[in-house]
């Protein structure tokens, strides 16, 4: 019986980690990272920073996905660690204490994206170099089609995540040796 609540917590955390965004992670890859957080599950928030006000010393963070998404407001002060990671739009993990019914952020950490096995990161300048050298590559925009329509990288094609899951990969090159570069809206 002892096991049940714990399992439930792990499930909850996995659900939180599955949040949309560049930082989206796959459950099996995060299983190891989940453990330390489990003990303090009720005092940790993971999600996207919706706003920060230095004047009001408040941060708001959106946790949960889709219809279950909700915004949580926390206070911070000079003792809050990692306040620089509370940037609007970035994914963050916030540990907090509850004082007088209000949440006080104690530690803020950036939520880093995990790369699937065998996949490596590419940085701006290297990518720019590949463009300059007309490298044989396909650049794929994983954001929703509307965002792709507004502003995309040169020559990028659009495959939003849901479409990739449904098999739109048919638009990918037949040559499986060719370099594929996926991008989205970044961590910020």
């Amino acid at each position: 019986m002892q096991n049940h609540p714990k399992k439930f917590f792990i499930f909850g955390i996995i659900a939180l980690l599955a949040l949309a965004g560049c930082a989206a992670e796959k459950p099996q890859e995060t299983a190891t990272a989940v453990k330390p957080a489990v003990e303090q599950a009720e005092n940790v928030l993971k999600g996207k920073i919706a706003g920060k006000s230095n004047k009001a010393k408040s941060i708001s963070i959106v946790v949960g996905k889709g219809d279950k998404a909700k915004t949580v407001m926390l206070k911070f002060d000079d003792n809050t660690k990692g306040i620089e990671f509370a940037k609007k739009g970035s994914a963050a993990i916030i540990k907090y204490d509850v004082k007088d019914g209000e949440k006080f952020a104690t530690i803020i950490k950036p939520k880093l994206a995990k790369l699937p096995a065998g996949v490596t990161e590419i940085k701006t300048e290297e990518l720019r170099g590949l463009y300059e050298n007309h490298a044989d590559m396909t650049v794929i925009d994983a954001r929703p089609a509307s965002r792709y329509a507004q502003a995309r990288l040169p020559g990028a094609i659009s495959i939003p995540v849901p479409e990739m899951k449904m098999g739109k990969e048919t638009v990918l090159p037949a040559n499986k040796e060719q370099l594929l570069v996926f991008y989205c809206g970044g961590p910020t």
């Binding site: 560049c22 930082a23 699937p116 096995a117 996949v119 490596t120 954001r143 990739m164 990969e169 996926f182």
Partner: peptide, 18 residues
């Protein structure tokens, strides 16, 4: 999101995914 797609591409057999 891009990591999800990259993972799927890898599963489809693409060798050079970044």
């Amino acid at each position: 999101m891009s990591t999800t797609n990259a993972g799927l591409a890898k599963k489809l057999g693409y060798k050079n995914v970044r």
